[in-house]
């Protein structure tokens, strides 16, 4: 009932969920073996080489900084892509008509089916 056959394999969400829950319990058990000398309150404060802790709002990593490395290493690709996305309506129509023409040529040149 829950098993999705995909010809080559199968997918059963119930088995997955059970496995996931078992894993969670195992992790919890492992965690409970942890350090018992932990002191609440004192040890949760960040230690920044003795500097005072910055404001909460400044600690948050803003979206623009995430995956900076990824976009930086693919700079050329992103530059080309941004250049293509001009936002100019003429270019939109240009792309559409261009692809239309390519598809028309490919379909017309290729022969019939069965």
């Amino acid at each position: 009932m829950f098993t999705l056959e995909t010809n080559t394999g199968f997918w059963n969400p119930i088995i997955w969920i059970i496995a996931f829950l078992v894993l969670c319990i195992v992790i919890y058990v492992l965690r409970s073996f942890g350090e018992s000398s932990y002191k609440k309150g004192e040890q949760i404060k960040p230690f920044l080489s003795g500097n005072p802790e910055p404001e909460k709002g400044d600690v948050h990593i803003r979206a623009g900084n995430i995956y900076w490395g990824f976009t930086e290493s693919l700079k050329e690709y992103y530059k080309t892509m941004t250049n293509i996305h001009t936002g100019d309506i003429n270019d939109y129509v240009y792309w559409f008509i261009g692809i239309l023409a390519i598809i028309l040529v490919v379909v017309s040149v290729s022969g019939g089916g069965l």
């Binding site: 293509i84 939109y92 559409f96 692809i99 239309l100 028309l104 379909v107 017309s108 019939g112």
Partner: peptide, 27 residues
């Protein structure tokens, strides 16, 4: 599936691909 049908097919494929937002007609 004459030539005219091929043209019609090309038009339909391109137009509906554009309308569903297929690259590079996705802008």
């Amino acid at each position: 599936y004459s030539l005219l049908d091929k043209i019609a097919l090309g038009l339909l494929v391109a137009v509906f691909a554009m309308k569903c937002g297929a690259v590079p007609m996705h802008m």
